[in-house]
């Protein structure tokens, strides 16, 4: 097993060859913000929050998919990166209908936490106020598209961990949205096993337990990690 040595934020860090910059940083206790990244499923590099500066490269690289390399010099937290990250969070707030005050995930939301982390005390971009629906047709879970950030974590846990691929993305661009089966009410899905992994995977209040009231929805990420380890490594 080859070990690589690199510097992250001026700290010397060693990492296994197959690890990503994000893995290495986390092991070293260096925080890099993420949203679409979810431990236990594949990375898509879509949210761009984990972009870092790599010395010698003009392009910013997403830490979640960038493999470590010997002698790499990484900066994770420059003013420029922080500024970009704040805009990303602003973009998400402007895009959907994220009304924290009346959201089931208020206080337990990765988007809200990111806003706090980025110092986002207001949104400079134009709010879109899309007209989106809530699906409560499932016996146990609900889906509020207003709060969906299109991170595809639900799609990936469903496909990669549960293996039924109930969820997918439909539409394109700003019209993108997640669907179950043929864009039908979740409760009528024939593929859904009601395993609830998508609920735990969701970073916001978009997917929730039925009956959740405001601020009550808590996602159990540890459960996803546990199941992923059990499935993939046969370790419990």
């Amino acid at each position: 097993m080859a070990v690589k040595t690199l510097t992250i934020d001026d700290r010397l860090v060693s990492a296994r060859e197959e690890e990503t910059v994000l893995d290495a940083a986390r092991e070293a206790g260096i925080h890099i913000p993420t949203l679409c990244y979810l431990e236990g499923v594949s990375e898509v590099g879509a949210c761009r929050l984990c972009l870092v500066e790599v010395a010698g490269s003009s392009k910013l690289q997403p830490a979640c998919v960038t493999k470590v390399a010997e002698g790499m010099e990484i900066q994770t937290n420059t003013d420029r990166l922080q500024n970009y990250r704040r805009i990303i969070v602003e973009m998400l707030f402007a895009e959907g209908n994220h009304v924290c005050s009346v959201c089931v995930a208020n206080g337990n939301c990765e988007l809200q936490d990111l806003a706090i982390e980025m110092g986002m005390d207001h949104v400079r971009l134009e709010y879109q106020f899309p007209d989106r629906q809530v699906d409560l047709s499932h016996d146990r879970f609900g889906m509020d598209h207003n709060r969906c950030v299109l991170c595809t974590r639900c799609v990936r846990v469903c496909d990669e961990l549960e293996g039924v691929h109930t969820w997918d993305m439909a539409g394109r661009g700003s019209q993108s949205h997640v669907i179950t089966d043929l864009n039908q009410p979740w409760g009528t899905s024939q593929t859904c096993t009601s395993c609830g992994k998508c609920v735990e995977a969701c970073p916001t209040g978009a997917i929730f337990h039925q009956g959740s009231s405001v601020g009550e929805m808590v996602h159990d990420r540890a459960r996803i990690e546990f199941i992923a380890t059990a499935r993939q490594k046969q370790q419990w």
Partner: peptide, 9 residues
Amino acid sequence: CGKCIPCRV
């Protein structure tokens, strides 16, 4: 395509 936030939004 809508995948990454900076482009989509």
